[in-house]
Amino acid sequence: MALRTTAVLCNSMKKWAYNMAGFNKYGLMRDDCLYENEDVKEALRRLPDHVIDERNFRLVRAIQLSLQKSILPKEEWTKYEEDKLYLSPIVDQVKKERKEREEWEKNY
C-alpha cells in the first residue's frame, strides 16, 4: 500500500515539475529544450526530416509566442502523458559512440 502511494505521489510530483517548467505552455516537448552541443547536433542530423520539421515548427511557434508575451490556450499545451522523448535516446547513442571512439583513439 505504501509503495503504491509513493508511486502515485512521485508521478504527481513529476507532473507538477513538468508544468512548472513552463515550456509546455508554448507547445514544446522536453527534447526541444536540450542545449545544442556537438552530441545533440549529431543526433539532430540523424533524425528523419518530418521529425525535424515538427521540431522546427514548435520552436518557431514558441519564439513567436515569447515575442508576443503570450502562451498557447490551455487545451494546446503539451501534456506530460503526450510528451515523448524523441531525441534523448539518439543523443545517448551518440555519446556512447563518441566515448567508444575516444577510448579507441586513446588506446590504439
Rank of each mutant, 00 (worst) to 15 (best):
G27I: 08
N19G: 09
D39W: 08
S12T: 07
G22F: 07
E36M: 08
A43D: 08
F23N: 03
T5R: 15
E42F: 02
H50Q: 12
C33R: 02
D49L: 10
K25Y: 09
M13Y: 12
E38I: 03
C10A: 13
M29R: 09
L44G: 04
E42H: 00
D39P: 00
M20P: 00
T5D: 15
K25A: 06
F23L: 10
A21W: 09
K25E: 09
D31H: 10
T6Q: 14
L34G: 00
C10I: 07
Y35D: 12
A21V: 03
H50S: 13
P48H: 08
C10W: 12
W16M: 15
C33I: 03
K15P: 01
W16H: 15
N11V: 02
D39K: 06
S12H: 12
A43H: 05
V51N: 04
A43K: 00
C10N: 11
A43L: 04
R46C: 03
C10R: 09
Y26C: 09
Y35C: 10
L44K: 09
H50A: 08
K41S: 08
G27C: 11
Y26P: 01
N19E: 13
M13H: 09
S12W: 05
F23V: 07
L44P: 02
M13E: 11
Y18N: 01
Y35H: 13
N11Q: 12
L47P: 01
V51R: 09
R45K: 13
R46S: 00
N24G: 13
E42C: 00
D49H: 08
G22Q: 01
M29W: 11
T6Y: 13
T6L: 10
G22P: 06
S12D: 13
E38K: 12
M13W: 10
K15V: 11
T5M: 14
D32A: 05
C33H: 03
G27S: 09
C10P: 00
Y18G: 01
G22R: 07
